[in-house]
Design a protein around this nucleic acid. Structure first.
Lengths: 220, 220
DNA sequence: CGGGACTTGTGAAACCATTCACAATCCAAC
DNA sequence: GTTGGATTGTGAATGGTTTCACAAGTCCCG
């Protein structure tokens, strides 16, 4: 299999979301142009993205919504459920527990950890908060770790998560994380986005125009 | 001024965060190589990023931490404070209100709106939740709107926000937004990141390797 | 069964971002 | 001063992603 860019993978997620919506609305068939229009990209881009993984359409007709949906779910690894651990039961952690929308996509938070003894042992959305000290042992069988601790603690937590053989991390700490090659990291950083908006606002005033693409999440 | 990519702007934010940290630790001078190492990029990339905006270093020596900090704050438009409105007082909105870390970077949430009559009028972190119907009038003087409503309601809200002359939007709804050319939009989409991790996990098993860059936030 | 309208899949071209490589510059030490 | 070691700023080269353009395939209709 060829090397596929993160941009492509992100777009596949977007396509999948739209397809799910359209399927619910009873749409059975869809052309690349329409898919592109509704996802904010180009028809050529849609076809190129899909072409990395096979051929899914019918010439002259477009794509079958249920078939493409299934194909994308397979590509993205969404045919199974993933076991997720949340590390850090602070404000962000609380929001994630409350807003478990991603459960619908197959991501189940099955363990929660915190370093604060006052929080350990309390129940939270049906889960008991575990001691930070138990990380190593309790991360057995976890696929993805969500790191929602202060920036200063993040690298330390990540080292222990990696040692526990977790190979995917969703990071909410605004800091760079060093991980081995085989561990995937994605970072969500709201402050960064706000600063991007700030730049856009002052530069609109300065007369600058449209900017282009976006930065890389690290891996390895 | 030349066209500058969003990747560059995002990295400038990262540099600024590190510089702030280093300044607090008493570091006064810094070379591009060290800055790069600590931010997960390359020395050449750091220098190229900065070169779009001027020359800030001293050959043979590196960059003055306070001077570069000030320069970056200027470039990113962080020398002033921004007035932010939060639209949607649900789970995500609640997390944002509670976790106001970005206040330190100059972003003040000064208004909150919700469509649910049960929530309107209640006080929340010192702000009274306003009626959705008052959006148009109450958005006067707002620089940035945070859209934290369900995907199905997002485009409608955005249209009204744009009509109220807000020119920057931070979107938490997992949906594409259509906005005029002059409005900047950044989207935060956790489900997308999780799906990227899912892909990485299944593809590691399939034997694929390292992927590269990341998707674009829309503008216009 | 053949023509026309439409759409896919894909090599090639265009575009954009990153890395390279080096001249220009600076500081410190002697 | 002058030498040596270090670092920036930047044009050129490289590498990667997106767009273009078109042959090949599909369906519908008469």
């Amino acid at each position: 299999m060829k090397k596929v860019s993160e941009s492509t993978i992100a777009r596949l997620s977007v396509y999948l979301r739209l397809l799910t919506e359209l399927a619910a609305a009873g749409v059975t068939t869809l052309a690349s142009g329409e898919l592109a229009r509704r996802c904010g990209t180009s028809a050529a881009q849609v076809r190129k993205d899909l072409s990395f993984f096979g051929t899914f359409g019918k010439r002259g007709l477009g794509y079958s919504v249920p078939e493409l949906t299934e194909a994308l779910r397979g590509i993205l690894g969404l045919e199974r459920r993933w076991r997720v651990a949340l590390i850090g039961a602070g404000k962000i952690g609380a929001a994630l527990m409350a807003y478990q929308d991603f459960r619908r996509q197959g991501f189940d938070i099955v363990a929660v950890f915190d370093a604060d003894p006052a929080r350990v042992g309390t129940e939270w959305q049906g889960l008991v908060i575990q001691r930070d000290a138990d990380l190593e042992t309790s991360l057995q069988g976890i696929d993805i770790a969500i790191v929602a601790v202060p920036a200063s603690a993040a690298q330390g937590v990540v080292n222990r998560v990696v040692a526990a053989d977790v190979r995917a991390i969703l990071n909410f700490a605004p800091t760079k994380l060093d991980v081995p090659e085989h561990v995937a990291v994605k970072t969500v950083n709201m402050a960064l986005e706000l600063e991007g908006l700030s730049y856009a606002l002052v530069n609109e005033a300065r007369g600058a125009r449209r900017v282009t693409s976006r930065p890389a999440a690290s891996r390895g």
